[in-house]
Amino acid sequence: MAIEIVQCGALITAALLMIIGLVALVYLDNVLKKIIGAAFIGDGVNLLIIALGYRVNGIPYIFLQNMDVNSFLGQASYPLPFALVLTSIVIGASTLAVMLALAVVLYKRNGTLSATALLNDKKLGEENNE
């Protein structure tokens, strides 16, 4: 059982990352900290997906000519989560980039990063168009 600690640890870390991210999104006021929290949630989910593909004493999932099929099937780790998590990381990176760019623009315009000041639209239903 000692070896499965790796997988267990990864899953617990993933859960912690998600919870920390949610707490940051709800309780922290700085917009940048909120963005970091949001990125944490995505990272937690990615870690969970990677942990799903983990196999105790696993080998890479590349089938070579001289391998025995049965031992390969018994040992190879599961490839699908790795393929998926790559896509997911790319999506997360681009989302993060756009969010940070927006934070930069908002900071330049308003001179503050406080979420209560920036994202609190008290002008109820008032939308003027330029």
């Binding site: 949610l22 999104l25 709800v26 979420a115 209560t116 994202l119 609190n120 639209d121 008290k122 109820l124």
Partner: peptide, 17 residues
């Protein structure tokens, strides 16, 4: 309801969580 249902981010996030 109108007051509660505003465009405040903290409010939205609270209900989402």
């Amino acid at each position: 309801l109108y007051k509660e249902h505003n465009d405040d981010f903290n409010n939205m996030m609270f209900y989402a969580v």
